[in-house]
Design a binder for these strands. Structure first.
Lengths: 144, 144
DNA sequence: CTAGGTCCTAGAGTCCTCTCTAGATCAACA
DNA sequence: TGTTGATCTAGAGAGGACTCTAGGACCTAG
C-alpha cells in the first residue's frame, strides 16, 4: 500500500521537510517513486529503512556516513566487508561515547552529592562562590 | 602561577579561539584578568572550571546551560536548589541518552551479526540489495 | 633592526542538520 | 465555484559551537 510523504512523516517521526532533505542528500537506496502528478509515493520498505536511519542518527552517525552505507548497499553484493567495517567502526565510536557519558555522569553525580550534603547540613553558604573564592575557598573549593 | 591563553589552550585541550569565545559567551565566573598590555592571565582555578566545562560539554550540555549554571554560582549563596535541579535535569538527560545509545548499539550489533553470519556462510549475495529488493527479497530482507 | 611568535579585537565563515518561505499545482469537499 | 489542505521546487534562514581572517601591538632572539 502506498504512502504519501505526509503519512511517512507521521509514521517515521521525521518532518516532510526532512524527508525531502534526506532524499536530496541521497539517503534512499532507490530514487523515491512518484505519481503522475509528481507526488512522492513511499512503501513499507522505505519506512523500515527510515527507522534504521533514525536509530543510526540518534547514535550520532552523520548523514554522510549513512549515505556511504547506502551507497555500498546500492552497489550490490561484493562489498559486505566494507559495510560491516563501517558498522563496526560506528559501533566502537558509540561505545566510546557511552563511556564518555558515564564519566560525565560520575562527575555530575559527585557534584549533586556534594550539593545535597551541604544543603542537608544547612551549610550551603560554605560552597564555592566565585566572588569570594580567594578570600575563603573553604573546604569545598572544588564545588562549583 | 600565571598562565597565558596559549598555555591554557594546551592544558585544557580547547583552542585559544574557543577560550576567547567562551569568555565572550560569559562562561567564566569572573571576568578574565588582564596584564597591563591587555593579555589574558589565567590561573589553576580557571583550568579546573574548564575541565568541568569540557566534561559537561562532552555529555552534550549546551553552552547556554553552562552559562545558566555559572550565572547562578556567580549570584552567590541562596540558589543551591536551582543549581542542584539544573544538574539533576541534565543527569536525567544523559541517562536517557545512554539508553538511546544502548538501543542503537543493539540494532547495530544485530546487523553486524547477520552480516558476519552470511559472510561466514559465503552467502553474502543473498543479503538485501536495493536493486533487486523486489525481484528476490530472500530470507534476509531486513538486512541492509 | 628585523623576523618570528604570541597576543589583541571585531567580525566573517564553516559545518551540520534541518526548518521555513514563496509561489505554484492539484484534489476533494461544501 | 471557491476554499481548504496536501504537495511540489528552489532556495533562504536558523542554531550551535566553533574556527578563521584581517589588521595591529608587543616581545625576544639573532
Amino acid at each position: 500500500m502506498d504512502l504519501s510523504i505526509g503519512e511517512v512523516a507521521q509514521r517515521s517521526g521525521l518532518s516532510v521537510h526532512a524527508l525531502r532533505f534526506y532524499e536530496r542528500e541521497g539517503l534512499f537506496a532507490n530514487p523515491v517513486r512518484r505519481l503522475a502528478n509528481g507526488r512522492r509515493v513511499y512503501h513499507e520498505e522505505e519506512l523500515e529503512w527510515l527507522a534504521i536511519c533514525t536509530k543510526l542518527r540518534s547514535s550520532g552517525m552523520p548523514l554522510a556516513t549513512i549515505r556511504q552505507y547506502i551507497e555500498l548497499a546500492r552497489q550490490g553484493a561484493g562489498n559486505e566487508h566494507e559495510r560491516l567495517e563501517l558498522l563496526r567502526r560506528h559501533e566502537r565510536q558509540v561505545e566510546a561515547q557511552v563511556r564518555e557519558l558515564q564519566e560525565a555522569l560520575d562527575v555530575m553525580r559527585e557534584k549533586v552529592r556534594i550539593y545535597e550534603e551541604h544543603l542537608a547540613r544547612g551549610e550551603a553558604d560554605r560552597l564555592w562562590n566565585p566572588s569570594h573564592a580567594e578570600a575563603d575557598p573553604g573546604p569545598e573549593q572544588a564545588c562549583r
